[in-house]
Amino acid sequence: MNTICEVNVQRYPFDDQECLVELSTWGYAMNEVNLIVPNDPQLDTRLYVQSGEWIYVSFSVILNNITDDMNTYRTVQFKLKFERRWLFYSQYLLLPIMMNSVLMISVFLVPLDSGEKLGFSLTVLLSYVVLLTIVTDNLPPISTKTSVLQIYLSFLMILGTVTTLLSIWVLTLYNKDETQRIHFLLQKFADYVIAPITCLPCRKKNTVADLTSSDIKLQDTVVRNDDKENIMKNHERSQRIPSSTKNVLGAEQADRMSCREFAIVLDIFLFRVSAFSLFLLTLTITIFLVT
């Protein structure tokens, strides 16, 4: 006797399946053929062959009576529960997916002037296509529900595509002329959105402090120690004097960041946002699969 089980791979590869085997007496009522089960039924597993993919968990027996206009018929349902061995799939699929996720957001850590940023992003994106193909080949095509792992990989492919497009935009901004300023709206976006996440004001203070200390060390070789305070005052005064660029572009435009500066800050912002999004998505999927 052969039986077919409906497969639910929604929690693949941490899924468990229940196979229902139903026996009934066709054309014979209960007064003619009565199906009974013992009070404490036991499953004989002597002929059971261990599977490399599934683990037998438990079974149960359910008696049902079907009544028509004249007779009552009895059916016996045997429910067998199996659990998938997930350790192999964790090394075969889950570990490469996690490692590729880390590589995907690491594209924003690649230096902008290295020339490998875009190629790195495209390589990681293609690896996700291969992983999605492997997962699809391991899933039965007749499942009534979609695997959460497959949905997760689809979202990662979308995130990888967006990451690649954003990397192209960042490289475009970085390779523009150093004197070219960003748009007024991008400056507002940098001030109110990027600055709180990347701590842009802190970076500016650190830059000014580093410049000040380096100038003092340079001047200290030819100037006496008593003149350090004068050097500090002269440096602060020079910071308040408008530069030649401000005179040409105007005060309002000169206050904007250059395209290269914005590209560097945007790279840091995109890394932190993508890392948080990936962590949130992975945590949600993990909780759903494990619980």
Rank of each mutant, 00 (worst) to 15 (best):
Y92E: 11
L171W: 04
N8Q: 09
N34E: 15
Y89S: 07
L281C: 06
H183S: 14
P111F: 09
Q77L: 11
S274E: 03
I151N: 07
W26Q: 14
R74L: 08
P141Q: 13
G27Y: 04
Y192F: 10
V110W: 02
N247E: 10
L63M: 15
C5V: 10
L156I: 01
T286E: 03
V107A: 04
T179L: 13
V110K: 04
P41Y: 11
T25S: 12
S60I: 04
F276N: 09
L118W: 02
M98S: 13
E178H: 11
V223E: 14
N100G: 04
P111I: 07
R203E: 05
D210A: 15
T198I: 05
L47T: 11
K204N: 15
W54L: 12
D215N: 15
T164N: 10
T286C: 06
T172D: 15
V265R: 06
N64F: 05
Y152D: 03
M30F: 02
Y92Q: 11
T164S: 12
V223G: 08
S213G: 09
L47F: 10
L20N: 15
L153G: 00
V61C: 05
Y152F: 14
V76T: 03
R85T: 05
Y28K: 06
Y12W: 10
F108L: 02
H235I: 12
V57G: 08
N175K: 10
V223I: 13
V265W: 06
W86N: 05
M157D: 03
L171T: 02
T25M: 11
A251F: 12
N2F: 14
S147D: 01
Q187S: 05
L47E: 12
L266A: 00
E229A: 15
M70I: 14
Q50I: 09
V290M: 08
I62S: 07
M232K: 11
E6K: 14
T123F: 14
T221V: 14
T133K: 15
L280H: 07
V290Y: 07
H183M: 14
Q10H: 09
I97K: 05
L132P: 01
G119K: 06
L112T: 00
F59T: 00
F14T: 00
V208G: 08
S24W: 04
E32F: 09
Q91K: 07
F82L: 08
G52N: 13
L159G: 02
M98V: 07
V273G: 01
L80D: 02
D210G: 15
D16Q: 12
